[in-house]
Amino acid sequence: MIDLIKELTESYGPSGREEEVQKVVLKHLEGHIDGHRFDPLGNLLVWKKGKSDKKVLLDAHIDEIGLVVTNIDDKGFLRIEPVGGVSPYTYVGHRVRFPKATGVVYYEGETPEEQKKNLSNLTFDHLFVDIGACDRKEAESIVPIGTFGVYDSYFYENGKYLVSKSMDDRIGCAVLVEVFKNLKDPRHTVIGSFSVQEEIGLVGASVAAYDFSPLLCVAVDVTDSADYPKGLKRHAMALGKGPAIKIKDRASISHRKVVELLEQAAQKAGVPYQKEVLTFGGTNAAVLQRTKEGIPSATLSIPTRYVHSPSETVSLSDVEGAVKLLVSFIDLELEL
């Protein structure tokens, strides 16, 4: 599974530009699904038929946060704006990867005082990108305005933890892929939605379930794990204590019955789990539950440190637990 996570997290797929990652997903799912299609927005939908007439939709978003080029100056330096919730601080001195170039991000300031001021109130208007171009023309030919970029970051194993960019939410994609690999003759039909444009407003998942009318949905996404020095108070999530069954975040309240079923599935499979109340944030469950006449939905989270940074950190044991939990979940009777 580590190779899969490495390949998925190192792939390029900012919101609206998810094709490369979807290809990776499809490659790994070959032979493990009964069919797939892309919907009008570009969501990749895959399915495996079950014995019952019940349908379960599992969602993971395939996009990651990023940057987009908004201007190019005469000397070939780029200006950028964020794609999704990106802190400008995570990019200072770091690198951004475009499809045809990698650039260094730095901040402007014409005096030491101005540099200090800009750094303490940093906005994207202070940042520029250096792709090593000589002039506007050269830069435009490599990264025209409207080109999307992502953190230039790589996957590595940090002790018992896994570190990379875009664990949010390639780790969810990896979980879904592994679940499909483990479904030999599933009790219920399982639909997997690798949804686009989550980071800029839960766009893809708003329509992903429309044609399927599933019995219930589970979004698999990361949640903030603040188990580090002076991390956020009031939050219980921690790495290594198992996948987190979300009760509530700012965008949705998990359907109570789906929560109970997820807990049953965890107990049946002997998977340790934690319960999650996040005081901010949201996942695709928020829009899945509002599709058509409403679909009972919940989120299963992978606790993650340093979310929306180039070094998002998860514990492999939580990820493996999530896979076992969901396989066990699909084998429940699923009476709502």
């Binding site: 919907d39 009008p40 927005l41 908004t70 704006e81 766009v203 708003s206 329509v207 429309y210």
Partner: peptide, 23 residues
């Protein structure tokens, strides 16, 4: 010309998120 700021929204955002999705 490309529109060079990403602020502001249009009905395109709503169309994407309704029904089966309209690109």
């Amino acid at each position: 010309q490309p529109k060079r700021r990403t602020a502001g929204g249009t009905d395109a955002a709503r169309l994407a998120k309704t029904g089966g999705g309209v690109p």
